[in-house]
Simulated assay, not measured.
Amino acid sequence: MDSIVEKIKSGELIPFLGMGIFEDTKCKDGSTLPYDSDSMILALNNGRAMSPRLMYEYSRAAMSLEQRKGREFIIQMTNHIYSSKEYEIPDTYKWLATLKPKYVIDTNMDDSLQKIYSDCNHFLITGVSRITADWDRYLIYFYDVDTKAYTRVEKDKLTLDLPILFKPMGSTKPEMNFIISDADFVDWLTEAMGGYAMPEILKEYRKNKEYLFLGVDFSRDTFRMVTNEVTIGLESGIVLFNKDELTKKEDKFIKTHNLTALNMSINEFIKSHE
């Protein structure tokens, strides 16, 4: 059996998913879902481009929209992007559904990951920001396959006996919580650096692990910082890039994190490891 598949199944190689896995994903009405920073900005702003300064990264654009239209607008608009239309689950999720990794990190904000684990009990951890009740920037849920429902649980209930789905940037379900604007990321990253972005059990589990980065954009400062905090203690990993040349920041990040860059599309990679 392929060593990558074996490592994913055993938990030695942890899938880390980004927005790029939605490239070419079509909704039933023919529209597309955001698959990079630019397309996310257009989706948040009703298809209209914003100023070059705001188009640099979607968190910056989201912050501008939040300042003008309010926090609730950004929450509802993000939910609308992923919940208002029917679309087929991307091939990456279909592939992972056959492997059922013990631990998956998914920075996307829709519920595709939850769907592929809906046939088994599991834990779901979603990121939250800008709360005053606690230092922790996450919520933990237990999914009961018999009731088909999520129940929020305390962190002492979390175990490694069941699959753990970690969505640090939040999700549409079971509750709408999104890390999307600059203010969200600043708050989340600040607490992450203090050790409050994930439960202690995962901090131990992640030590000396390898990661498989699919659709993650390392050309943007924000997601390099998110990745750095979530994968502290990593041993090595694989990252896919389907373009001619890496930026200097991407190249530096890959080298300092002992990652191997493969110049191939996600679909090519999946087909070679089915």
Score class of each variant (00 low, 15 high):
residue 93 Y to D: 08
residue 93 Y to I: 10
residue 93 Y to C: 10
residue 94 K to F: 11
residue 94 K to V: 13
residue 95 W to H: 08
residue 95 W to I: 11
residue 95 W to A: 08
residue 96 L to P: 02
residue 96 L to D: 08
residue 97 A to F: 07
residue 97 A to D: 14
residue 98 T to P: 03
residue 98 T to G: 04
residue 98 T to C: 08
residue 99 L to N: 03
residue 99 L to M: 14
residue 99 L to F: 08
residue 99 L to Y: 05
residue 100 K to D: 08
residue 101 P to C: 04
residue 101 P to Q: 01
residue 101 P to N: 02
residue 101 P to D: 02
residue 102 K to Q: 11
residue 103 Y to W: 13
residue 103 Y to S: 01
residue 104 V to E: 00
residue 104 V to S: 01
residue 104 V to Q: 00
residue 104 V to K: 00
residue 104 V to G: 01
residue 105 I to M: 03
residue 105 I to K: 01
residue 105 I to P: 02
residue 105 I to R: 01
residue 106 D to I: 00
residue 106 D to K: 00
residue 107 T to S: 09
residue 107 T to N: 12
residue 107 T to G: 04
residue 108 N to A: 10
residue 108 N to R: 11
residue 108 N to P: 07
residue 108 N to G: 06
residue 109 M to P: 05
residue 110 D to C: 11
residue 110 D to Q: 09
residue 111 D to W: 07
residue 111 D to T: 08
residue 111 D to E: 11
residue 111 D to K: 13
residue 112 S to C: 15
residue 112 S to A: 14
residue 112 S to I: 13
residue 113 L to W: 05
residue 113 L to Y: 05
residue 113 L to A: 06
residue 114 Q to R: 10
residue 114 Q to E: 15
residue 114 Q to Y: 05
residue 115 K to C: 12
residue 115 K to G: 10
residue 115 K to W: 12
residue 115 K to E: 15
residue 115 K to R: 15
residue 115 K to S: 12
residue 115 K to L: 14
residue 116 I to C: 01
residue 116 I to H: 02
residue 116 I to M: 14
residue 117 Y to F: 14
residue 117 Y to P: 06
residue 117 Y to G: 07
residue 118 S to I: 13
residue 118 S to D: 14
residue 119 D to E: 15
residue 119 D to N: 14
residue 119 D to H: 09
residue 120 C to P: 05
residue 120 C to Q: 15
residue 120 C to K: 14
residue 121 N to I: 03
residue 121 N to W: 10
residue 121 N to C: 04
residue 122 H to Q: 09
residue 122 H to D: 03
residue 122 H to R: 13
residue 123 F to Q: 00
residue 123 F to W: 00
residue 124 L to G: 01
residue 124 L to P: 07
residue 125 I to M: 09
residue 125 I to D: 09
residue 125 I to W: 06
residue 125 I to A: 07
residue 125 I to H: 09
residue 125 I to Y: 06
residue 126 T to G: 00
residue 126 T to R: 00
residue 126 T to V: 12
residue 127 G to E: 02
residue 127 G to N: 01
residue 128 V to T: 10
residue 129 S to Y: 10
residue 129 S to A: 15
residue 130 R to C: 12
residue 130 R to M: 10
residue 130 R to V: 06
residue 130 R to S: 07
residue 131 I to R: 05
residue 131 I to N: 06
residue 131 I to F: 05
residue 131 I to S: 04
residue 132 T to D: 15
residue 132 T to C: 09
residue 132 T to R: 05
residue 133 A to F: 13
residue 133 A to E: 14
residue 133 A to L: 11
residue 133 A to V: 11
residue 133 A to N: 12
residue 133 A to M: 09
residue 133 A to P: 03
residue 134 D to E: 15
residue 135 W to R: 12
residue 135 W to Q: 14
residue 136 D to K: 15
residue 136 D to S: 14
residue 136 D to G: 09
residue 137 R to E: 12
residue 138 Y to R: 00
residue 138 Y to S: 00
residue 138 Y to M: 00
residue 139 L to E: 13
residue 140 I to Q: 01
residue 140 I to W: 06
residue 140 I to H: 12
residue 141 Y to W: 08
residue 141 Y to I: 02
residue 141 Y to M: 01
residue 142 F to E: 13
residue 142 F to Y: 15
residue 142 F to L: 12
